[in-house]
Computed example of a mutant assay.
Amino acid sequence: MEKSIKNIGLLKGKVLVFGGVYSNLQALEAIKNLAFADGIFPENIICTGDIVAYCAQPKECIELIKNWGIHCIAGNVELNLVNDIDDCGCNFEDGSRCDIFSRQWYPYLKSQVSDDDVNWLSTIPEFISFTYADKNVAVIHGSYFNTSEFIFKSTDWETKEQNFKALNADVILAGHCGLPFADSLKDKVWLNPGVIGMPANDGTPRVWYAILDDSDGFNFEICALDYDYKTTANLMVGKTLPQTYKETLETGIWDNWEILPEQEKGLQGKSIKV
């Protein structure tokens, strides 16, 4: 069944791309300040979904995104909130650590957002397309076929190619997996800017985003972002949230490797070079 894709037309100039806010208001404020300092306007800013999740301030993050007026797609968390489903939709194996943690943070999230918040989330498209530097660009969360699908750099190209064909895209901007990377073959580019709500398992508290630049064709840079992670971590104390995620904010190390392919498992604690 063909899915609905919102086309936002032609974009020019620098474009800021980020995702996985995960209810981390301090990181969201930092990326907004960066955009303002760089002169990047809301119409050139794209969020790849999961505005809300693990951290303590989901309602505040929804309000900031809504008032900022940027482009945003729905991640699996938003889709499940809108559909009033009682889990985050990541399809974790029953009894796994990720499954156990989601049973803590997802009910907390549902308790913090209002009907008005959920109604606004229901207006967010699942996919976006636009033209940039003479290329067809598509924005997805996990994959076109499954919003919760984890696609990493090591994921086989055939899986990625199916998405390019389905979306008629030259460039795909994706989210969900939590790690920044770029992968390309011939004239196709799969770009995941990483997330701003949690570190990228590299042993530092920094988070990640990307900048597209059309000043000389299609170019991009994946960048690290420093922010006030100590406040984010402290706000999780005393709440029904996984405290191991608080520790990840501080150490930059993921608690477990359940979702990671072997190649990505070997990168834990190593400096990210993009």
Score class of each variant (00 low, 15 high):
146 N>T: 10
146 N>I: 09
147 T>C: 02
148 S>R: 03
148 S>V: 03
149 E>I: 03
150 F>Y: 15
150 F>K: 11
151 I>E: 00
151 I>W: 03
151 I>Y: 06
152 F>M: 00
152 F>W: 08
155 T>D: 00
155 T>C: 00
156 D>C: 12
156 D>A: 08
159 T>P: 09
164 F>D: 05
164 F>E: 01
166 A>H: 06
167 L>E: 10
167 L>D: 09
167 L>S: 09
168 N>V: 13
169 A>Y: 09
170 D>L: 05
171 V>C: 01
172 I>W: 12
173 L>W: 11
173 L>A: 03
175 G>Y: 01
176 H>T: 08
177 C>K: 04
177 C>I: 10
177 C>A: 09
180 P>N: 05
181 F>E: 00
181 F>K: 06
184 S>A: 14
184 S>E: 06
185 L>W: 14
186 K>R: 14
187 D>E: 13
188 K>E: 03
188 K>M: 04
189 V>T: 13
189 V>K: 14
189 V>C: 07
190 W>T: 00
190 W>Y: 15
191 L>F: 05
192 N>R: 04
193 P>K: 02
193 P>R: 02
195 V>M: 13
195 V>W: 12
196 I>L: 14
196 I>Q: 07
197 G>F: 11
197 G>W: 09
197 G>V: 06
199 P>I: 00
201 N>Q: 05
204 T>C: 01
204 T>S: 14
204 T>V: 15
204 T>D: 08
206 R>G: 11
207 V>E: 08
207 V>I: 09
208 W>M: 03
209 Y>I: 06
210 A>N: 09
210 A>S: 12
210 A>W: 08
211 I>M: 07
212 L>S: 01
213 D>W: 13
214 D>M: 14
215 S>M: 06
216 D>I: 04
217 G>N: 09
217 G>V: 10
217 G>F: 11
